[in-house]
């Protein structure tokens, strides 16, 4: 998917993460802040990058502010932000396909 416009999903509440995506310059630039950076920083980064790869996002500036979200929440927030950026978040989501 191509990131067309800036979009955000998620909140700064505990157990959640706020993900922002913006059009990139040909690669993925990930900036991550987390309340559990020392323990889980690497895993969070991997989950975010894997999710972007599954959605075939190749160029984007991605900002994640994590408040101790589980992997399933991180995935949900990244996906929602990407689909919102393409104006496709409201219907016909490929559940079980690219979103899984």
């Amino acid at each position: 998917m191509e990131i067309l416009k800036p979009a955000m999903a998620g909140t700064l509440e505990s157990s959640d993460a706020q993900v922002t995506v913006e059009p990139g310059n040909g690669k993925i630039q990930l900036s991550l802040q987390s309340s559990v950076m020392n323990q889980y920083g690497r895993q969070i980064r991997e989950t975010v990058l894997e999710t972007l790869e599954r959605l075939e996002v190749q160029s984007a500036k991605v900002t994640v502010v994590d408040k101790g979200a589980l992997d399933c929440t991180l995935k949900a927030r990244v996906e929602c932000a990407v689909f919102r950026s393409c104006g496709q978040s409201a219907a016909n989501i490929p559940w079980g396909g690219a979103v899984r």
């Binding site: 999903a9 399933c72 949900a76 919102r84």
Partner: peptide, 16 residues
């Protein structure tokens, strides 16, 4: 937030 809730729901159902 209806769209975001669905993504969140889907992964909760599949993971938890």
């Amino acid at each position: 937030q209806k769209d975001a809730a669905r993504f969140s729901l889907y992964h909760a159902l599949k993971t938890i």
